[in-house]
Simulated scan of single mutants.
Amino acid sequence: MAEKKDSENKKYELIKQAIENLAFGELHITIHNGKIVQINRIEKQRFSV
C-alpha cells in the first residue's frame, strides 16, 4: 500500500512542477476510474511585436 501511495504522490509532484514551470500554456490531466493516467503539457512561447 505504501508503494501505491508513493506512486500517487509522485504524480501530484509532477503536476505541481508542470504548473510552476509554465508561464503560458495548458496542462491536461487525464483520469480513468479515479486514477491519474496521463499528464499533457502544452507550452506556448510569447513574443512582443
Results as ranks from 00 to 15, higher is better:
Met1Ser: 14
Met1Cys: 07
Met1Glu: 08
Met1Gly: 15
Ala2Glu: 10
Ala2Phe: 13
Ala2Asp: 09
Glu3Asn: 10
Lys4Glu: 15
Lys4Asp: 12
Lys5Met: 13
Asp6Gly: 02
Ser7Ile: 14
Glu8Arg: 02
Glu8Asp: 04
Asn9Thr: 09
Asn9Trp: 04
Lys10Tyr: 13
Lys11Ala: 14
Glu13Tyr: 07
Glu13Leu: 14
Glu13Ala: 13
Leu14Met: 15
Ile15Met: 13
Ile15Asp: 06
Lys16Glu: 12
Lys16Asp: 11
Lys16Trp: 05
Gln17Arg: 15
Gln17Thr: 11
Ala18Glu: 11
Ile19Leu: 13
Glu20Ile: 13
Asn21Leu: 14
Asn21Cys: 10
Leu22Asn: 04
Leu22Val: 01
Ala23Trp: 00
Ala23Lys: 15
Phe24Trp: 03
Gly25Asn: 08
Gly25Ile: 11
Gly25Val: 09
Gly25Lys: 07
Ile29Ala: 01
Thr30Leu: 13
Thr30His: 12
Ile31Gln: 02
Ile31Glu: 03
His32Phe: 10
Asn33Trp: 01
Asn33Cys: 02
Asn33Ser: 09
Asn33Pro: 01
Gly34Phe: 01
Lys35Met: 09
Ile36Pro: 02
Ile36Asp: 04
Val37Lys: 09
Val37Leu: 06
Gln38Arg: 13
Ile39Gly: 06
Ile39Glu: 07
Ile39Tyr: 04
Ile39Trp: 06
Asn40Glu: 15
Asn40Trp: 01
Arg41Pro: 01
Glu43Asn: 09
Gln45Met: 10
Arg46Lys: 09
Phe47Leu: 00
Phe47Thr: 00
Ser48Tyr: 04
Ser48Leu: 08
Val49Ala: 06
